[in-house]
Design a protein around this nucleic acid. Structure first.
Lengths: 212, 212
DNA sequence: ATAAATCTGTTGCACAAGCAACGAAAGAAA
DNA sequence: TTTCTTTCGTTGCTTGTGCAACAGATTTAT
C-alpha cells in the first residue's frame, strides 16, 4: 500500500509540515483521539506510536477496523469526501504523537514554492485508490455464500502475496473470522474439515493450499 | 456522488480534453469496451450513451457491478492505484461515445496554463473518497449475520436519502438481494414476514419503516 | 515454576437462509 | 385483446453456520 509520504524524505517532511501548518499533538496509551461524529478536517499522520480504529456496533460489539502504525496516515477518505465526520472511535494503542494536516492545505497549491506538493497529491490519490480496490476485494469475498469459498479466496490472497507454497497469514483466527464475516468456531470447524479432506494444510498461522 | 467534471462547464471540457489529448472512441450497443486483464491507463468519460460493468464469476454467474451513465467517468481507482489492469468486463449498454483520458495527464500539471486542472484533481480525490465510504458502508452491511439486519440497514440508507416516511428504492428485488448478498426468495420471504409483523410496509419499490 | 489469561479446536443443537419449483401479477409486445 | 416475458411472492425441504459451552494448547504475568 502506498503511504502518503512515500518518496518524501524525513527532513522534507518537516518542511512540508511547516508549510501545511500541521498541528502536533501527543496522546497517552488508551487515550481517545477521536469519537464518532466528531468533526474532522485533517489527515492524520502517526509520527510515533500506534493507534487503532474501532467500530462500535449498536449491539455493543467492538470491532477493530484498522491499526495505523508509525509513518502511516489515516482519515484521508473521510476528509476528502467532504463528510468530515469521524465514523469510528480512534484510540491510542500506545503513547503516540500525531500531526493533524488540514486537507485544504494539501488540496490547494501552496503559495510558497513547495517542491513535494505534487508528489503528495499523487500519493493521496494513489493510496485512496488502493484502499478502494482492497475494499472491493473484500466485498467480493463477503458476497460468497459458502464459508469454504471465502476461506479459499482469503488464503489465495495471502498465497499470492507471499508467493510461496507455504505462507503466513497476519490474523488470529478471531480476526480472520471477522474479516470473513463468519463465526469463529464455524471457521475453525471448516478449516479442520478442509485439512482432513487434504484441501489445505496449516499449523498456527502457516498455511498451504494443496491443489493437485 | 461527486463526478470528475463537476463544476466544469461543457465548453471548458472541450478545452480540457484537448489539453489532455483525450482519445474519443465510439461503440455500438453490446460491444465489448474492455475485457478482464486488459491494460488500462486512462480514466474513461462517458460522453454519450450508457455502459455497464460486469463481473464474471468463476461459476459463470454474471453480476452487474455498476452502470455508468452519460456525463460520468469510471476506472479512476484502477488506474490511479497503479494496478492498471481492468478487473471486469465493460460493455456498451447502448451506443456510446467515450473519451479516454490518460491518467498521467491528469496527475501532472499541464504545461499550458490550464485553469481547471486543480478543480479536476480535487474532484478526482473527492469522488474516489466518496466511493471509498460507500464501499465501507456496504462492507458493514455485509458483515451483519442476519438478513433482517441487512434489510434494515439498507432501508435506513434510502430513508435518509429520500428524507421522507415513504421512500423509493432504486433496485429490483433481484438487485436488492445481490446488494445484500442474499438469496432473492429468502429476501422476499423476510420482507413479507417483516411486513406481517408491522415492522415495515411496502408496495413495489415504495417502502416505509414503521418504528414506534 | 505456577497461575492466569488468551487463543484455538470440538461438539450438539437450533434455525436462518439457500435452493428449486411453481404460480400470480405486472409489464411489454404483438 | 391475447400472448409472451419478467418480476415477485410462496412454500417444502435441506443444510450450512451461528451460538454456547467446554477442553486443550499456548502465551503472558506473577
Amino acid at each position: 500500500m502506498t503511504k502518503l509520504f512515500d518518496g518524501i524524505e524525513e527532513k522534507d517532511k518537516e518542511t512540508l509540515f511547516k508549510c501545511f501548518n500541521a498541528v502536533k499533538k501527543s496522546f497517552f496509551k488508551d487515550e481517545i483521539i477521536l469519537e464518532p461524529e466528531q468533526k474532522i478536517d485533517s489527515v492524520i499522520y502517526v509520527s510515533n506510536g500506534c493507534i487503532k480504529i474501532i467500530k462500535d456496533d449498536f449491539d455493543g460489539n467492538k470491532i477493530i477496523i484498522d491499526t495505523i502504525k508509525k509513518g502511516e496516515t489515516f482519515a484521508e477518505a473521510v476528509v476528502c469526501s467532504g463528510i468530515k465526520k469521524c465514523p469510528n472511535f480512534v484510540y491510542a494503542q500506545t503513547d503516540a504523537t500525531l500531526y493533524f494536516i488540514n486537507i485544504e492545505k494539501i488540496l490547494n497549491p501552496c503559495t510558497e514554492a513547495c517542491l513535494f506538493h505534487k508528489k503528495l497529491l499523487q500519493n493521496l490519490v494513489k493510496s485512496i485508490s488502493e484502499k478502494n480496490l482492497f475494499l472491493n476485494q473484500r466485498i467480493e469475498l463477503l458476497t460468497k455464500k459458502s464459508l469454504r469459498e471465502r476461506i479459499l479466496i482469503y488464503l489465495d490472497k495471502y498465497k499470492q502475496k507471499n508467493n510461496n507454497k507455504i505462507f503466513e497469514i497476519p490474523h488470529s483466527r478471531e480476526e480472520m473470522a471477522q474479516y470473513l464475516g463468519v463465526n469463529r468456531s464455524a471457521l475453525s470447524r471448516e478449516l479442520c474439515i478442509m485439512k482432513a479432506q487434504k484441501l489445505i494444510d496449516f499449523h498456527k498461522n502457516s498455511f498451504s493450499i494443496l491443489t493437485n
